[in-house]
Design a protein around this nucleic acid. Structure first.
Length: 571
DNA sequence: TCTGGGGTCCTAGGACCC
DNA sequence: TCTGGGGTCCTAGGACCC
């Protein structure tokens, strides 16, 4: 515990949702929910406008839709968030060599080690400047906590949200923490809180009064002792720059439980290969292979096997995974499968000959596969590689030959609805195309700031905002390009600036006393991941396209999203 | 309401060794 | 003949975090 508040914790505000609002002008000031779009999806991040309606991180998306049917529901675009995160982390590294990232949107910084602040006033100045810099570089807001210990800095940034800065002065922490719920302390989740509650402990003060011995008795050695220290405001953990990953894993939840044993096996093999790809990309190898199986009833089990030495050989991992699967009863249905590797090393100890042998095998197998393909023996699965995605996820970046850059607002019943706008443009308008319209293809994410209004990608055509080009195509039939006539969607779309609300205003609405802190999991849990796990045949697109205000149907998109307090109320 | 994906750390029991 | 401790490794599960 230091005598000056020189440990800084930065937490970006509603990170994923804020990034989407920055990228999509028509969504600014509107409720936005980023997360899994499928029937089993959960919310990663809700914008502050969506939180007004009770939408929270980790909530099933289906429940969020009931609470706030008019929000924009978007799949995460991790490449964009990573890019923004990198530029934020760069700003942090300018302050100190000791930067400890906790996730894409969160990090500790040791200001003392950086020599940029030795007292409270200096720390505040650094924190405020950092917030300005983040805004200038990314267009997004972040909240800063400053204290003499990590735990307190994190509590401070939470209290500062959104778009604020808070200092906990060393010496004041016990008084400050005393009345707070024990859930405030890191490491206290639902189970620990319940165990403590049964012992009559609900506040931090009561936790401290209970004493270390009692807490150890209730919670076990490590957890009890750690919690006792935290309750006293004691936390000596240093800011640690880089930590090597200890495991790599991938998992998929299926839209419909898998019952066919062969299918389960095939999916597991796919996962094993994906896992090894990630392992190799990280330049690592591992010794323990783990599989995870979640059953139809949500019961979950793991099976693991430790090899004689570390490997990054897909065949070795795949075979271990399949062996482990043989130990598991999957009758009744499998909801989720996962494959992981732990016991990571930086190199492989497998003997060179074995390595060469498997590579040769793989080469031969590939050769055979090619032969089979040529002979026309391949069945259905491997259709020729198309440039278009199998599904048009809401939020996906696209480019249209005629209308330029935009993003998918929704899709279904053979159509895809696109809003043509860029981060620096006015809110754009919506057009609907056939899903197989050849003029429409996936596009690169655009930078959130500094994107020069590029020359119009449309050769000789008017820009997307000019209007009058007519409907591109429509209806479930094939592409009907270039027909004239006004675009009905365009007529109903936002004019420039319409419906624009300064984000700050609605954030303020959300900032009701106590409304944030009482809630766990916290308001920002953007570390969720691929939600687009739907297997091709299960087809969420039809489901989501039908009757979803944001995701489909021409004009009823975000352009018609009402301000918070109007539309979403009482549905 | 029906529960994602990617991680970390801890506990506990059994095997095995000294 | 009945019963040591301690250490390490492996496996399984659970809590927690974002």
């Amino acid at each position: 515990m230091r005598r000056a508040p020189t440990i800084l914790h930065l937490d970006m505000d509603a990170f994923f949702a804020a990034a989407e609002q920055a990228a999509k002008p028509s969504l600014r000031g509107k409720p936005v929910v980023v997360g899994g779009i499928g029937p089993r999806g959960v919310v990663s991040t809700a914008s502050y406008e969506a939180r007004v309606f009770g939408v929270r991180s980790a909530m099933p998306t289906a429940q969020a839709r009931r609470l706030c049917p008019n929000a924009a529901y978007l799949s995460p675009r991790f490449s964009v968030y990573r890019q923004v995160s990198d530029s934020v982390m760069q700003l942090l590294h300018a302050l100190s060599p000791l930067v400890e990232p906790l996730s894409l949107d969160e990090a500790f910084v040791d200001l003392e080690a950086g020599g940029v602040a030795a007292d409270s006033a200096a720390a505040r100045a650094v924190g405020e400047q950092l917030r300005r810099d983040i805004r200038a570089v990314t267009g997004l807001t972040g909240s800063v906590g400053l204290a003499g210990a990590k735990m307190l800095a994190k509590i401070a940034s939470e209290a500062a949200k959104p778009d604020g800065l808070r200092i906990i002065e060393p010496g004041t922490e016990r008084e400050l923490l005393a009345p707070m719920t024990v859930r405030t302390l890191p490491g206290v989740g639902p189970a620990t809180a319940e165990a403590l509650r049964r012992a009559g402990i609900t506040t931090v003060a009561e936790t401290a009064e209970a004493g270390e011995a009692e807490l150890v008795r209730l919670l076990g050695r490590a957890h009890g002792a750690g919690l006792y220290a935290m309750a006293l405001g004691r936390d000596d953990r240093p800011v640690v720059a880089e930590r090597d990953a200890k495991s790599v894993s991938v998992e998929d939840t299926f839209e419909v439980d898998l019952t066919d044993r062969t299918r389960v096996r095939n999916e597991l093999v796919r996962l094993a290969e994906r896992c090894v790809q990630r392992l190799r990309a990280a330049g690592r190898s591992g010794r323990t292979v783990v599989i995870k199986v979640r059953n139809y009833d949500f019961s979950t089990l793991t099976r693991s096997e430790t090899l004689r030495g570390p490997t990054d050989d897909p065949a070795v991992v795949r075979e271990a995974a399949v062996r482990l699967l043989d130990l598991v009863d999957t009758t009744g249905g499998v909801r989720l499968l996962g494959v992981g590797v732990s016991g990571l090393a930086d190199f492989t100890q497998e003997d060179l000959f074995a390595q060469l042998a498997t590579e040769q095998e793989a080469a031969e197998a590939a050769q055979q596969a090619r032969g089979a393909a040529v002979a026309g023996e391949e069945q259905g699965g491997a259709e020729p590689e198309e440039e278009r995605p199998r599904r048009w996820h809401p939020g996906l970046d696209v480019v249209h030959d005629e209308y330029g850059a935009g993003w998918v607002q929704g899709s279904g019943v053979g159509r895809v609805t696109v809003r043509f706008e860029q981060p620096w443009s006015a809110p754009g308008r919506v057009r609907t195309f056939a899903v197989d319209d050849p003029a429409l293809r996936p596009g690169e994410p655009l930078p959130l700031v500094g994107g020069a209004p590029e020359p119009d990608p449309v050769r000789g055509g008017a820009g997307p905002a000019t209007g009058g080009e007519g409907e591109a195509s429509a209806m479930a039939g094939g592409p009907m390009s270039g027909a004239g006539g006004p675009d009905p969607d365009a007529l109903e779309s936002d004019g420039p600036g319409a419906g624009r609300v300064e984000p700050r205003r609605t954030e303020a609405i959300c900032r009701e006393p106590g409304s944030q802190k009482a809630e766990r999991p916290g308001p920002d849990r953007p570390e969720a991941h691929r939600q687009d796990l739907v297997r091709p045949e299960s087809g969420w697109a039809g489901a989501s396209g039908e009757g979803e205000p944001v995701e489909g149907r021409g004009s009823s998109g975000p352009s018609e999203i009402s301000a918070p307090g109007e539309a979403c109320r009482g549905s």
